[in-house]
Design a binder for these strands. Structure first.
Lengths: 142, 142
DNA sequence: TATTGTTATACTCTATAACTATA
DNA sequence: TATAGTTATAGAGTATAACAATA
């Protein structure tokens, strides 16, 4: 196979993959917008099934801890979470308020309705798709 | 299935997909960095197998045309492309210089070597993976 | 001395709007 | 009037570094 052809193949497949990922993100963004919250707020809410230290939320969202403070401020000002003290008095946990739980419930419904993969693939295909994704991650070292 | 479980499923699969997409991007970013060019420059170079109007490159890179001007400036200052006049005297095409072609060649080699999907999946799996990606795109309306 | 969260600031990426020159 | 490229500017999103409180 020519180098040009192989580049084109790798690029096309990558582009396709990224396109699907972007579609997934933009669907989620649309849902967030409909519910009147920024995307990162919505992502945070999804991750707060139980109370989580701000610290940990940063690593879940793959961002710096300094970014969590204003994010938590925003979530708090929307009445979705409260800061609660942890065992270690340095740490604060973010816990959903009842409004936050309602928001999380709405997100849950809409996300499963609108997720491109949930829509397009049946359960068997999803299993196979997921297996390949995991294979890609593990065989690429991380 | 409970709403919580379905949200978790949709979220996990989305997260996995996005993780693989981000891995693909970060591999490409690493390659670009190793070659001493910004990611968008590298993406542009890959797309310039033949000369392309700046206009078209914008839609290929899915960005505004105003972003192409400084990008082209940068590529030009690196000696990778030149602006060549098109038939219509308003349009300018970006064409690789011989240095640009060398850069594209290097990119081609490294990208096919480092692409997580090329590494982890055999040809049959890739075909199946690609088919599912296309299915997701088409059945999700876009 | 190391860690949690906070604050102030700065940076990267990209878009918007107004402009020039062609068409 | 519409289009290609340019320019100046502005905004979103996020990180860095220094700091306070606690361990």
């Amino acid at each position: 196979m020519s180098a040009d052809k192989r580049l084109a193949d790798a690029r096309d497949l990558s582009q396709l993959l990224i396109q699907v990922a972007e579609l997934t993100k933009s669907r989620f963004a649309k849902i967030s917008e409909d519910l009147g919250v920024p995307v990162q707020v919505a992502r945070g809410i999804c991750l707060l099934q139980t109370a989580v230290p701000m610290n940990e939320l940063a690593s879940m969202l793959d961002c710096d801890k300094s970014y969590i403070t204003p994010l938590a401020d925003h979530m708090e000002s929307l009445g979705l979470v409260t800061r609660v003290p942890g065992e270690d008095r340095r740490t604060k946990l973010l816990a959903l308020t009842s409004e936050g739980k309602t928001m999380r419930q709405k997100l849950a419904e809409k996300v499963t309705e609108a997720s491109p993969m949930m829509i397009a693939l049946d359960e068997i295909q999803r299993a196979s798709f997921e297996q390949m994704l995991r294979q890609i991650l593990s065989e690429s070292g991380r």
